[in-house]
Amino acid sequence: MKNIMISSELFGKIIKYHLLDQKREAEDIRKGLEKKLDTMANRELYSKYKTAPTEEEREKSRQEYLDRKGIPESFRW
């Protein structure tokens, strides 16, 4: 299993939410975790793009990565 790092600020909010019962942190926690998940997905697609065994798989991963990053079709090579 891989380790995943989060910011100390997000970790502090999670601690407050669970241990101190400060429920007002819930929305910030949700946004922070969603941002982390997006970052992880982008990194996985980029890694696939760089290490895929075939040219078709590399191109597919590259297109998915650029789509997720919001790069317009007209700006791509």
Results as ranks from 00 to 15, higher is better:
Met1Asp: 04
Met1Ala: 11
Met1Phe: 06
Met1Cys: 10
Lys2Ile: 15
Lys2His: 14
Asn3Glu: 11
Asn3His: 02
Ile4Pro: 02
Met5Asp: 13
Met5Asn: 07
Ile6Phe: 07
Ser7Lys: 11
Ser7Trp: 09
Ser8Ala: 08
Ser8Gly: 07
Ser8Asp: 09
Glu9Cys: 07
Glu9Asp: 09
Glu9Leu: 05
Leu10Arg: 03
Leu10Cys: 09
Phe11Val: 00
Gly12Trp: 06
Gly12Cys: 10
Ile14Asn: 06
Ile15Trp: 01
Lys16Trp: 06
Lys16Cys: 07
Tyr17Asn: 04
Leu19Ser: 00
Leu19Glu: 02
Leu20Tyr: 04
Leu20Trp: 08
Leu20Asp: 05
Asp21Leu: 10
Gln22Arg: 01
Arg24Glu: 10
Arg24Pro: 03
Arg24Phe: 08
Glu25Ser: 08
Glu25Gln: 12
Ala26Phe: 08
Ala26Cys: 03
Ala26Tyr: 12
Asp28Gln: 11
Ile29Cys: 09
Ile29Lys: 02
Arg30Cys: 12
Lys31Met: 13
Lys31Glu: 13
Gly32Leu: 09
Leu33His: 15
Glu34Tyr: 02
Glu34Lys: 00
Lys35Met: 14
Lys35His: 06
Lys36Asn: 14
Lys36Arg: 13
Asp38Arg: 00
Asp38Val: 00
Thr39Asn: 11
Thr39Lys: 14
Thr39Ala: 09
Ala41Arg: 08
Ala41Asn: 15
Ala41Tyr: 10
Asn42Tyr: 11
Asn42Ile: 12
Asn42Trp: 10
Arg43Glu: 15
Arg43Cys: 04
Tyr49Lys: 14
Lys50Ala: 14
Lys50Phe: 14
Lys50Glu: 11
Thr51Arg: 13
Ala52Arg: 08
Pro53Gln: 10
Thr54Glu: 14
Thr54Trp: 05
Glu55Leu: 11
Glu56Lys: 04
Glu56Pro: 00
Glu56Leu: 04
Arg58Met: 11
Glu59Met: 13
Lys60Trp: 07
Arg62Asp: 11
Arg62Leu: 15
Glu64Phe: 04
Glu64Lys: 03
Tyr65Gly: 05
Tyr65Val: 05
Asp67Gln: 03
Asp67Pro: 01
Arg68Asp: 12
Arg68Gly: 01
Lys69Ser: 01
Lys69Glu: 07
Lys69Val: 08
Lys69Cys: 09
Gly70Tyr: 02
Gly70Thr: 11
Gly70Cys: 10
Gly70Leu: 04
Glu73Met: 04
Glu73Ser: 08
Ser74Ile: 01
Ser74Gly: 01
Phe75Pro: 01
Arg76Gly: 04
Arg76Ile: 06
Trp77Asn: 03
Trp77Phe: 02
